[in-house]
Write a protein that binds this DNA or RNA. Structure first.
Lengths: 148, 148
DNA sequence: ATTTTAGATGGAATATTTTTGCAAACAGGT
DNA sequence: ACCTGTTTGCAAAAATATTCCATCTAAAAT
């Protein structure tokens, strides 16, 4: 299924100058294969077979974050969610949609962040986060449902 | 100083159909007089003289939130911050600025939220939050500093 | 003014998530 | 095969938010 993501994960780690340990590769593979940001709990439960400690997950995510490999989303339930971001910076390059019903968080890739030229003098913006909260297509029942 | 905010607080509670208890009035007065959102910890330390329990603060804020009296800001350090919002809804009617150095959170009142007509079909946006993270005027040293 | 009642409060305790410390294990290079 | 700095595992701590239940109070009714 995700045979190539193994190579991709190793390559990303190599590019960032990080050691390619089995745990990190598995973690990064998981993030690469997920269509939406994952919480540490979700990651831990999906990585049980790899037997990667939660603290190690926490620290690896922390390292990834500092290297700009992942970005961190605060979805409103006091848990951070992580996703691989192609933009390579620590900031957010796109808005995020949070479903208020199912809690799912989605990256709205392809959408630019709004312009912000309206700050008071002296203020410097380093990064910005735009969260849209509402109902996803599944929860509004608008999905046509073509299987899977 | 804030003699009138006492009346204002009582009036707000009355309009919302909530009981005007001393604790709630003190809490609302504090929020009304604060230029930026406050965390529960900040509120508790500033309300020590009133001897209002932290749980009561938590519950009052929860009630205020449901009544649309306050709005809740997630500033990135996993603590909620609360501020009185004139818009009367539970959503956010303006962006928030978070200083990455001093942690201060400011309401960017007067600025409209960006348009969001670009969602996929089936998605419904109930509210949106825009956070700008960076350095405030104080932390960039851009304040002219006319005393105080 | 007294009574009544739904709602608010206090204090302790619980839940959840994040973060740290230290010793053992490992990756990557020589 | 060996060395060194990094990573991991396990236990434990921190920090914040949330719940429980008995008691008290605001505000309306008598």
């Amino acid at each position: 299924m995700h045979g190539e993501s193994n190579e991709t994960a190793i390559n990303i780690l190599y590019q960032a100058g990080l050691k390619r340990t089995p745990g990190r590769i598995a973690l990064l593979k998981l993030l690469l294969s997920s269509p939406h940001p994952l919480s540490q709990q979700e990651i831990a439960s999906r990585l049980e077979k790899v037997r990667l400690n939660r603290v190690s997950i926490y620290r690896s995510l922390h390292t990834f974050l500092q290297s700009g490999i992942v970005h961190r989303v605060e979805s409103g339930d006091r848990t951070w969610r992580f996703a691989v971001c192609g933009c390579g910076s620590r900031g957010h390059c796109h808005p995020h949609f949070i479903c208020s019903r199912c809690g799912r968080v989605e990256c709205l890739s392809g959408f630019k962040m709004p312009e912000t030229g309206y700050l008071q003098p002296g203020y410097v913006v380093e990064e910005q986060e735009l969260y849209l909260r509402g109902r996803c297509a599944t929860c509004t029942g608008a999905v046509t449902g073509d299987g899977s």
